[in-house]
């Protein structure tokens, strides 16, 4: 499974990099909506870091969301 994911990532990267000749299909002046803070995955870092910490402490799974490690005070 993990190898399949990395191969998929490399294919995506290779496909992206091989498209150097492709012009950006969303022009800079068309990115007002994408640049809106509500489109951020991490609008308020102090708040989302805490929620990810709660999930990491209470659930068996971990990672994949960019949260940092450390103690959890969760005995």
């Amino acid at each position: 499974m993990k190898q399949a994911i990395v191969i998929a990532l490399l294919v995506v990267l290779a496909a992206t990099l091989s498209g150097c000749g492709i012009q950006p299909w969303v022009k800079p002046y068309e990115r007002a909506n994408i640049a809106d803070p509500i489109m951020s995955w991490n609008r308020d870092p102090v708040s989302s870091a805490y929620l990810h910490h709660v999930y990491d402490a209470r659930e068996g799974a971990r990672g994949g969301a960019g949260a940092s490690g450390g103690g959890c005070g969760c005995n």
Partner: peptide, 23 residues
């Protein structure tokens, strides 16, 4: 921890993200 992330603007209203983390 080893992390990989890809953020991709797909259209002027749609954005995609892909993350992988090995620990």
């Amino acid at each position: 921890n080893y992390r990989f992330g890809l953020s991709q603007i797909l259209t002027k209203n749609l954005i995609a993200t892909l993350n992988y983390e090995a620990v």
